[in-house]
């Protein structure tokens, strides 16, 4: 591991200024991903600005009836919070489905959103990887891609975003507060935080490098109180998803009044199923309708040699989830 300096930031402005002034600087949150990547030689920062102690560590009710989660709130505290469990159960379930009790105690809300892909070539500096080293090539397209993207991939990268939490947040219309390197503050819909893969998969976010996530806002939603998360993985616990869905559904008189669907482990970002949602709203709340809606969403899937199983997997968990929510 390369030697680095360590500074504990006392305020958001100070943290952002320190990172903006040093190309080799990184924000340090819980460290569950960054410290590991440093040990693997994937990340080689010269300065760590520790933001985990910033006063962004509260879950609070907003005046409009929504909930605000500070970026430094640990994953376990979000999942255990009564407001989250009552109003946004899919978010609590998604977090509890991820990692282990120890890691959830460490990982922060902001860090979870910004964690890197677990593609085995990204985490191995001896292998070509366009995300780690632009222009070096993608080892996964012809290699081990069983758990990589079927949607939104590019000829340059087929990585998936590993977060469960972000999938639930995408379905729940979360908005992300950020402070940019020059100090400007913005609020971005979660879906707009991640850049499509394209030809520069190393550029993952739509915000400039050195931008700090300061919090996540969940809007009030009667739909969300009955939201759910379903994750499929290769062992019963403590594994990344091979497919997941966060959804919420409102039906009346056999008709879909409103619906939210987001998919995980299928793309380089949490995949909001806008196509399926548009088809479903106003239509019949039947299994056949759910099936044709998710089929329309998956019509653009471009599976690779070894990950075509994800198409029927996602179809099945989405249809079952919508049936459960309607029942």
């Amino acid at each position: 591991m390369r030697e680095f300096e360590y500074v504990r930031a006392g305020a958001v402005a100070e943290a952002v200024r320190l990172v903006a002034a040093d190309r080799d600087a990184r924000f340090l949150g819980g460290g569950t991903n960054l410290v590991d990547l440093m040990r693997l030689g994937v990340e080689r920062p010269g300065l760590l600005v520790d933001v985990s102690g910033l006063p962004l560590d509260q879950v609070t009710e907003t005046p409009d009836g929504g909930v605000y989660i500070g970026a430094m709130v640990r994953n376990s505290d979000v999942a255990a919070h009564p407001l989250i469990r009552e109003r946004y159960p899919a978010l609590a379930q998604a977090i509890l489905d991820g990692a282990s009790g120890q890691l959830r105690n460490m990982a922060t809300t902001g860090g979870n959103l910004l964690q890197r892909t677990r593609c085995v070539y990204f985490t191995d500096p001896t292998k070509p990887c366009n995300k780690r080293q632009p222009g070096s090539g993608c080892s996964a397209i012809e290699g081990d891609h069983r758990n990589l993207a079927i949607l939104g991939a590019s000829p340059h990268c087929v990585a998936t975003h590993p977060s469960d939490m972000a999938v639930a947040l995408a379905a729940l219309d979360a908005r992300v507060d950020v402070t940019e390197p020059r100090g400007g503050m913005r609020t971005i819909p979660l879906g707009d935080l991640y850049r499509p893969l394209g030809d520069r998969p190393d550029q993952e976010l739509t915000v400039p490098e050195g931008t700090l996530v300061t919090g996540v806002a969940l809007p009030p939603s009667p739909l969300a109180a009955r939201s759910r998360y379903r994750k499929v993985r290769e062992r019963a616990s403590y594994a990344f998803a091979i497919g997941s869905v966060a959804a919420a559904l409102d039906t009346a008189d056999g008709t879909v009044r409103d619906v939210r669907i987001a998919l995980g482990a299928v793309a380089s970002r949490p995949w909001r199923a806008h196509t399926a949602e548009r088809i479903l709203i106003g239509g019949p709340a039947t299994e056949a309708a759910y099936r044709s809606a998710i089929d329309a969403e998956l019509a653009h899937a471009q599976p690779l040699r070894d990950n075509a199983y994800k198409v029927p997997l996602v179809r099945t968990i989405v249809v079952r989830m919508l049936e459960e929510l309607a029942g």
């Binding site: 360590y6 340090l28 569950t32 520790d50 009790g101 120890q102």
Partner: peptide, 24 residues
């Protein structure tokens, strides 16, 4: 951070001590 052998209590909470920098 994958095996849990390094688990300790930090401020009373269980954590993987291998992924925590001592300075942090």
């Amino acid at each position: 951070g994958q095996c849990g052998a390094c688990t300790v209590l930090l401020g009373g909470r269980r954590v993987n001590s291998c992924l925590i920098l001592a300075v942090a």
